[in-house]
Write a protein that binds this DNA or RNA. Structure first.
Lengths: 338, 338
DNA sequence: TGCTTTCTTGCAACTAGTTGCAACAAAGGC
DNA sequence: GCCTTTGTTGCAACTAGTTGCAAGAAAGCA
């Protein structure tokens, strides 16, 4: 079945140690035996079994990649970049769909069974108890797209959601909107809370602007559409900061369905800048999350923790940038963004 | 560090065999020792190491989940369903992003190093040499979204792309279009070829309909937009069958940008029915691939092969269905789809 | 050539489990 | 109570590798 190290040793006429050492970088082998071994190995089509070697080395080169966000299109991009980045570093992602798992301990048990070298939790909606469980178990952990303050002792890489809320508020204020609102995802999500906090905070400096808010039941197209439909039946605001791009598009659909025009009747600003937001049929003004940077920093952090488990944790928070497209009215002449 | 079976045995005052057997279903252990062991295990927080046990059992319960399709939004749904489905069966997906790998042998080597129990290749654009390499190596393999004829001896689950082409052709003919075209992805993709073949074949029965075709450089929004822009500068058809939904949306954008209206000036029919196609800002008429069925069948097939490696392979081809939305003109009164 | 130093190599014990076998215990039948 | 059958248990050898140690080989130097 499988070609083993023993068979290679036999064929090459050397000990198993010699074979093991030829496949270990930095081990002491003469060129002569190395050649013999390599010859035998390629004859037999041998490749070492990482899992068997993990027993003694304690390294599986597997990273648990955990997410519950299999519906937000940005996460396809996230998975793409994570898998490529891990592969480049010689690591393999063991993917875990958290949607079915509710208990941090069972996730911990699961990933321990496979003795992964580290865990990346990629989602803003995973409760902090999950990363904390890994921290407590001494398993290298990074919470990507997480919230800084929530998980003390856990390395977090993400954005400043409060600042994003402020940024959205500033954009709306600068564009002269005087009745604005926040349309968030579920109120329980920390990201939603933070964005709303920042939004509110910034607008408290503009007493002339009337602020309201409401929450959709999920970060989804349907939830956005429903909530906006409901809002339009009352006395809608002039512009909405939506918790996320998918929500924005749901809202956009509801506005258009109601026979209103964007951005003339109602303005929308989203958050994420997913692939689809630039599609001309959508053309969403939004705040871009620097995904490549967040992922690169996450990978860096997990590798650093594996190499030095006692490394102190830190949070790396990246700045977001406003991407102006067609769903907010343009800046007045002479006014510039900041 | 890790709690081992030995420690549990010591604490419970039994042999390691007894512990091993308590965690093996169907093994012979008395209730008395089982209780002692379970007690000790939960005291120490023990969970067996799957990888160590895989050495003797030959089962890692890991499945290589291979794809190169990290840009098509349908694949988020595909990954979601695959990961959940595998989890339910007690299997773990080891995700491989094929975008960087070019050689079947290096993919084979990689997955052998982790002694995965089986491999699922989920993509219509992976060359058949990849699944064949696994077949030759005796590793259970399923090619999801693959093409039947291409990989003899490999279990394929997917759709009949030729029939999809015919279906699109019939829809256009029934709606009275008389100048139609196929806008495919890269001409090298077998799916593109098959869809074009079926489209052409069906329309050969309508000598009154003029058929043309062209190929975009990729299955992407930008490629669709570019190709449609080019087509519109010439003498465009009345309706286009696009190779895929993303391509369709690119084409849609180009048409709208040119000041033309859909479906009045130009009709579009896509293929896939991804999440976004039903968004009202897009509202794409398309052919739906039965993704849940394809995935369920793929999982069934891989499990069956693991249980019985000598099992004969088969192809499972699922029917697609037309989803009528707003990018084709309606059927004439009295005419019905078939 | 002889002595020291550095390299290479194999042995054997180890990693975390599983499993065939034999010994023993318990239960069942008469 | 004795014999047979069935159930439980531990030993030891096995899975595919790694690695500390000591011995032997090669190289360096005078």
């Amino acid at each position: 079945m499988q070609v083993t190290l023993k068979q290679v040793a036999e064929r090459a006429g050397v000990s198993t140690s010699a074979v093991s050492r030829t496949f270990t970088v930095g081990a002491s082998v003469s060129t002569k035996t190395r050649l013999k071994v390599e010859r035998a190995a390629s004859d037999l089509g041998y490749s070492p079994n990482v899992l068997a070697s993990s027993l003694t080395t304690g390294r599986t080169k597997m990273i648990g990649l955990v997410s519950n966000n299999f519906h937000n299109p940005v996460f396809l991009e996230v998975f793409d970049q994570f898998t490529r980045g891990l592969q480049v570093k010689g690591l393999r992602p063991l993917l875990v769909n958290l949607s079915d798992v509710v208990d941090p301990q069972s996730l911990l048990r699961l990933l321990r069974q496979y003795s992964v070298d580290g865990v990346i939790i990629a989602s803003s909606t995973v409760p902090p108890a999950f990363p904390r469980a890994f921290r407590a178990a001494g398993i290298p952990i990074v919470h990507s797209f997480g919230r800084y303050s929530a998980s003390q002792g856990v390395h977090v890489v993400g954005i400043d959601n409060v600042e994003c809320g402020r940024m959205a508020a500033r954009s709306l204020a600068l564009r002269g909107y005087r009745r604005v609102a926040f349309l968030g995802g579920p109120a329980t999500a920390t990201t939603t809370q933070d964005r709303w906090t920042g939004f509110q905070d910034e607008l408290s400096r503009h007493p002339d602007i009337i602020v309201s808010h409401s929450f959709a039941t999920a970060y989804s197209y349907d939830a956005g559409q429903q909530e906006m439909t409901r809002l339009l039946s009352g006395h809608p605001a002039e512009a909405y900061f939506c918790g996320d791009d998918v929500l924005s598009i749901g809202a956009l659909s509801a506005i258009r369905s109601a026979g209103l025009s964007v951005p003339d009747d109602v303005g929308i600003i989203g958050l994420n800048d997913m692939e689809m937001s630039r599609w001309q049929v959508i053309n969403l003004t939004t705040i871009r999350q620097p995904i490549p940077e967040i992922i690169a920093a996450s990978l860096e952090a997990i590798v650093a923790q594996i190499d030095d488990p006692d490394r102190s944790t830190e949070a790396r928070i990246f700045p977001c940038v406003l991407i102006e497209r067609g769903t907010l009215r343009p800046l007045p002449v002479g006014v510039s963004e900041t």
